[in-house]
Amino acid sequence: MDRLQTELRRFVIDNFMYGRECQMRDEDSFLDLGIIDSSGLLELVNFLEKQYGIQVEEADLVPENLDSIAQLARFLRRKLELQLAPVASQRLQHQTA
């Protein structure tokens, strides 16, 4: 399991399961397992924004992005890549010059 997924799993288990390990696979739906309630989604978004410095838009708030460890990791990577993209491109131009 990669580091990002481990971190996300740790947060979900600590925060929503009060640290109790459960038989949750990376693809299992938080909603189906009853792990996340109405305030849980907001806690999750707060965590992502603070911990990884990303901005979660209203349009991002769909289960396809946020409803399992695997979905969260994919969503987060995509967001981080988008954020890093302009910086990386600037750095490249600078090096070329």
């Binding site: 640290g19 305030s39 806690e43």
Partner: peptide, 26 residues
């Protein structure tokens, strides 16, 4: 109750991270 789980719940309140109804009820 599970003692480490209760400790996590208390910690959540002490660090101001308990924002929802579930934590209140717990």
């Amino acid at each position: 109750f599970d003692a480490p789980a209760v400790a996590k719940l208390v910690e959540k309140f002490k660090t101001g991270r308990a924002i929802g109804v579930k934590d209140d009820m717990a």
